[in-house]
Computed example of a mutant assay.
Amino acid sequence: MELRIFTEPQQGASYDTLLAVAKATEDLGFDAFFRSDHYLVMGDSDGLPGPTDAWVTLAGLARETSRIKLGTLMTAATFRLPGVLAIQVAQVDQMSGGRVEFGIGAGWYEAEHTAYGIPFPAEKFGRLEEQLAVVTGLWSTPVGRTFDFDGTYYQLKDSPALPKPTQTKVPVIIGGMGAKRTPELAARYADEFNVPFAPLAKSTEQIGRVKEAVAAAGRAADEMVYSNAVVAVVGKDDAEVARRAAAIGRDVDEVKADGLAGTPAEVVDRIGQYAEQGSSRFYLQILDLSDLDHLELIASQVQAQLG
């Protein structure tokens, strides 16, 4: 079981804060550092000092870390043209020595589009599908050949399809709870399917749908990694759990319902329940980025028990 650290910088985090968390992620033996791709705070936080761009952040971290994987849950397809996005991700993969993983979603938060003048199209899923076709097509085009694409939303002609990522195949992550189109899209393009913030029963149901879509697409079952994104609130005892939940404005029972909350022993048991459905990777959403002791506790008393 792999544990990855997942951050939400739009809630208020500078690059230096993210760097500190990423270095702790690496030093403590976690598998990866991921971040959201948002430009506007959600909820009651003031969001200070303001948003940071996902791929600019990951480019910086690529040069200041050496082992951990780096990626997004999820890059918004509405934010960037696919040709430009392919260049950005390939460059960060080069800068990291081949440690990037590419999570992409349709984009959903209309308010941040309005706040920063980003078009928010009515049809988003079709654009996501074409973005995946373009980005993966550009990366897989042999050097010396060109790439063309004539879609409804995007058209490319005689693209040199450069630069190439360092990795022969950048892992693609698709997620969501859609019952039909999302599993089918994942079966076509994804190396990993992520279930976001869902109770165990719903997570099991969605993974079942994706497994069916993977089989229908003629892919081997072991070609897809299944993962869960969950809020993490871990404490050495109930009092510490309650304190950490209060610090992020959450109720302990609420987090237990669709995330990971409790003592290390309780959290290890809960992870085991998700593992039984086929999940092999967890993205632990850490909302208090100043509490690095939280990461140390998870590393020493949860990760250590998972092997």
Rank of each mutant, 00 (worst) to 15 (best):
F6L: 04
G278S: 11
G97H: 15
A190V: 08
V267C: 01
V234D: 00
G235E: 10
E240H: 08
A133M: 13
Q88T: 15
L306C: 05
L297T: 05
A275H: 11
V210P: 02
S159F: 12
N194Y: 12
A77C: 07
A90S: 02
A13G: 02
F33R: 09
A229V: 14
R250P: 00
P196F: 14
T168R: 14
R281F: 09
F6Q: 06
E184C: 03
T52D: 04
D27S: 13
W55Q: 03
D258K: 01
T136R: 09
G43R: 12
P142N: 09
A77K: 08
F6T: 03
V255W: 05
Q91K: 14
F125Y: 10
D31R: 14
G47S: 12
S279A: 14
A213H: 10
M1L: 04
V234Q: 01
I68M: 06
Y109I: 09
G71S: 10
P163R: 06
G29S: 09
V230F: 08
T25K: 12
V252C: 01
G29Y: 14
Q277R: 13
Q88W: 12
Y153P: 02
P171H: 09
M224H: 08
A161K: 04
V143S: 06
M95D: 01
I87H: 04
R181V: 09
M42A: 14
T72A: 10
G47Q: 15
A257C: 04
G259S: 04
L260R: 01
Q155F: 06
A220K: 15
